[in-house]
Design a protein around this nucleic acid. Structure first.
Length: 256
DNA sequence: AAATAGCTCAACCGCGGCTAA
DNA sequence: ATTAGCCGCGGTTGAGCTATT
């Protein structure tokens, strides 16, 4: 059975929004919010379907929208995130404050895709190096635990073994890269991660779950629930990316 | 100046996920 | 367990703008 159309085609206006319609929508949402998009147009007195109203608000009228051209930093962020996430525009947008998924999708399709094409390989190498840069928001102790030596030369050299032990409140995680490159990370490591500054950390728990289903975090979570706190608070993509880049080949990150 | 090709981006479409009945 | 409705997402479209011929 097919789904009913989102709105009746008869009597519903389509196409570009007029300033008057914008104002009506803004006024209504400012007064009553947007609990029910489907009911909104009727209540606000707009001859639009709810979907159209939602789109207009999300992509254009929201007060926190950043207008104007993308900075070089924003473009680089999009490129990096796209490399990891693919066409998950909303996930990418979540990490670019003030930018919408639609806008990012447009920028990617019109500019960035073309820009990347000629020297894709060079770009990827550069980006991977960038991702493996030291994490300044962590202490030298933790950084050293994550980055015990130079990065592995090739994926074939890397073996990943992750274990976690739970002795009441004590939690120890071993990350082995080569057999001769073993780091022990004690509970101070995780405490430090938990207390890391939000502004520098950001959050993307979903991404961590996607990328690192068998990560130390997941194992910790299974062992004593410690990891679940991390997911709920400061799961930082770059941080985890760097961490697990140490224990596995970047190119072997699981597909989302 | 006119025609046309290329580009941009707001808006639409259809699908899948989620949830309540 | 099934169905219906809503929301959000990603892909696509097309009007309007700009550059080129």
């Amino acid at each position: 059975m097919g789904r009913a159309p989102c709105c009746e085609k008869m009597g519903v206006k389509r196409g570009p929004w007029t300033p008057e319609e914008d104002q009506i929508l803004i006024n209504y949402i400012n007064l009553y919010g947007h609990g029910n998009w489907r009911a909104l147009p009727k209540q606000a007195g707009l001859l639009r379907c709810g979907k159209s109203c939602r789109l207009r608000w999300i992509n254009y009228l929201r007060p926190d929208i950043k207008r104007g051209n993308f900075s070089r930093e924003e473009e680089d962020t999009i490129i990096n995130l796209h490399e990891m996430l693919g066409n998950r525009w909303s996930a990418i947008a979540a990490r670019l404050p003030g930018r919408t998924d639609n806008e990012i999708k447009n920028v990617w399709n019109t500019h960035l895709k073309k820009r990347l094409k000629p020297n894709d390989n060079k770009r990827q190498t550069k980006d991977i190096k960038k991702k493996q840069a030291p994490m300044n928001f962590l202490s030298p102790v933790v950084t050293a635990a994550i980055m015990p030596g130079s990065p592995p030369e090739s994926s074939s050299e890397v073996s990943t073994v992750t274990t976690s032990e739970n002795n009441s409140n004590m939690c120890t995680t071993k990350i082995e890269t080569h057999a001769d490159r073993v780091s022990e990370i004690d509970e101070n490591f995780w405490s430090e991660v938990l207390s890391a500054d939000n502004s520098s950390i950001g959050s993307d728990p979903q991404l961590c779950h996607h990328y690192f289903p068998s990560s130390p975090l997941s194992k910790l979570e299974a062992a004593n629930g410690y990891g679940s706190n991390l997911y709920d608070t400061d799961a930082n993509m770059d941080f985890w990316y760097n961490l697990f880049a140490r224990v596995g080949d970047l190119s072997e990150l699981p597909e989302i």
